[in-house]
Design a protein around this nucleic acid. Structure first.
Lengths: 242, 242
DNA sequence: AAGTGGTCTAGACCACATT
DNA sequence: ATGTGGTCTAGACCACTTG
């Protein structure tokens, strides 16, 4: 991590290079979920930069939700517990402003060759396989969301050999080393199809919220395509814009 | 801006105090839209803090979208041009990923005593007046969004004496000194009511996206309540979660 | 008491834009 | 050439947590 010479400076600032090194170590499992990173001074000494530069890199990782910093204790890799994942990546709230915490019914899991649409969404090559998961999520015992999840089979070998948990992203992180960092959701209103009607116990033609989500890992690779159809009833999707 | 004594430190860090001072000056019109702020060193000297502390405060304002920084030029108060406002606070995109840029038909504007719901959403006292705006927005010439906008009359005197523009927030900033900083949107799917059906030229019962939005200014005061009903057709609402 | 992150300072140099 | 923000360093002290 030598300083860039004056005549030919590195294209990227130092703290950015430090950030990439740290991401690489977290992604590779060198520091597993919930592990404490070395202190700012230790990292600075090891990488040959100042403590302030390491701090700027760590602040960036904290803002991206990859790491959490606790004064007096240290810096830790985020642990995707079910609670944390729901809190962070689930945007449905009830009338009182409380977040809705759905349960999950047993899912069906199938592996197949990726369709053209699936390859496009997930950036896969021709011939790649995907895992398709279908399940119904409930709220207060009633069907609430009906969703199809598509995963690149190469990233998640043997998924489906055990039961599919309610929250997938903690499984992704702890078993497969895939750390979810952000998602894009495309939201529309749809009329309940016969299939929706049956799955969600709602009249055909009733208005439902449809969420088409692609999820990305820490290195901006797409790792999941999820389509959810929701019978919101008295709940709503919350979006905060700054 | 004296440094805090050791025995009784200020509750807020210095850069936070600087941030509040700068927000106050922007909000008061001391630095109007698009104005250049003094340089970091000038502000530091004036406020009696180091340049690094001013920088941290300015970085915070930039992240909050209150200020934009341009290397080599300076730091400027954001200017809410129609383009900027649409880009920042309008989340509907078409199938190609392009942002939808709606037009606005002539609006109806009425002033009345605030209802209980309006007082609750806008944090108004009993007896306060509101301005209610109803309008239809179009896309490619076809009705697209049907919306009701409620504003505290005290904040926007004489609004409606002239035509209501397509994008309101630049008017808010330039005429009324109200700088919009963020919004919360509650999104649901609804069946088209007879009113929706007529306004949006769509079959009764068709699924529509309903957005219930409260908008806040720089100091977190609610300044607008807007309910929009959208016939998305081939478009979608985009939400990015980090 | 020791170790961590959080704040604050002072100063150097770089990259960029304008004059 | 000058002035701006952007990066980087070195060091001090504070606030918080744990032993």
């Amino acid at each position: 991590m030598a300083k860039a010479p004056t005549t030919r400076p590195d294209a990227r600032p130092l703290y950015e290079q430090v950030r990439l090194i740290l991401i690489e170590r977290i992604q590779s499992g060198h520091w597993p979920p919930a592990a404490a990173l070395p202190s700012e001074f230790e990292l600075a000494a090891e990488l040959g930069v100042s403590q302030g530069t390491v701090r700027k890199a760590l602040d960036g990782l904290a803002e991206a939700g990859i790491v959490v910093r606790r004064q007096g204790r240290g810096t830790f890799v985020v642990e995707h517990t079910p609670q944390h994942v729901l809190f962070r990546f689930f945007s449905i709230y009830d009338e009182t402003g409380e977040q809705v915490l759905p349960d999950s019914l047993p899912a069906s899991v199938r592996t197949a060759a990726a369709s053209a649409a699936e390859r496009a969404k997930l950036g896969l090559d021709k011939g790649a396989e995907v895992i398709r998961i279908r399940r119904i999520r409930t709220r207060r015992g009633a069907p609430f969301i009906h969703e199809t999840i598509v995963l690149p089979a190469a990233l998640f070998p043997d998924l489906g050999k055990t039961d599919v948990p309610n929250t997938l992203y903690d499984l992704f992180q702890k078993v497969y080393g895939v750390l979810v960092a952000h998602t894009d959701e495309r939201i529309t209103a749809v009329a309940a199809s016969p299939v929706d009607s049956k799955a969600l116990d709602v009249a055909a033609g009733a208005p439902l919220l449809h969420i088409d989500r692609v999820t990305f890992d820490i290195e901006h690779r797409p790792v999941e395509w999820r389509r959810s159809t929701c019978n919101l009833r008295d709940a709503h999707y919350l979006s905060r814009l700054r």
